[in-house]
Simulated scan of single mutants.
Amino acid sequence: MSIQSSRTIFGENKNILRDAQHFISLPVKVSATLITANSNGKKILSAGSIVDNTGKIVNDGTAYGFVYEDVDFTNSTGIETVPVVVHGIIDSKQIPIQPTAEALAAMKLISIV
């Protein structure tokens, strides 16, 4: 059985990329149970969040890449496929948390400027 999800783009899209012409994003499955609600009751995975290859939010040596765009998990009941930048140049001013040295070392194909 396959489940199809839909995504709503809301508000102003953030651009975490410094060079939007040269990057690679890959799909990563993220469980809605890993996302906590904000003060408005929305469950948003923010653009620029760091995730591992299993979809867990991290900031350590297991880092895989940066979430490419805000993803709304508010109405999700399971797993959503999220685009994750694994190669490219990221604008340090556009990400919610700066990566640790261990996270940067793990994401070998990403530069932060």
Rank of each mutant, 00 (worst) to 15 (best):
I9K: 14
E102V: 00
E102Q: 11
N13G: 00
S46A: 10
I89M: 03
L17I: 01
I79G: 03
A63S: 08
I112D: 04
A37W: 03
I44L: 08
D60E: 02
E12T: 11
S111G: 03
T100K: 12
V86W: 06
I97C: 09
D91R: 04
I9G: 09
R18A: 14
S31N: 13
V67D: 04
I95R: 04
N53M: 10
E102G: 05
Y68G: 04
I97M: 08
P99D: 01
S2E: 12
V30A: 10
V67F: 07
D19I: 06
A37L: 09
S2L: 11
G55M: 13
F66D: 02
T54S: 11
K56F: 07
D19K: 14
I90M: 12
I57F: 00
L104K: 15
S39D: 10
N59E: 05
Q94N: 15
K14P: 02
E102C: 00
I97R: 12
V85R: 08
N40S: 13
A103K: 05
T62G: 10
H22C: 06
L45H: 01
F10T: 01
T62M: 06
K108W: 05
T77A: 10
I9L: 14
D52T: 04
I16M: 12
S76A: 12
I57N: 04
F23G: 00
V67M: 05
Y64V: 00
S111Q: 14
D52P: 14
F10G: 03
P83N: 09
K29C: 00
G11F: 02
K14R: 15
S25A: 15
P96S: 08
G88R: 07
A103S: 07
Q4G: 02
Q98C: 02
L109N: 15
K29M: 11
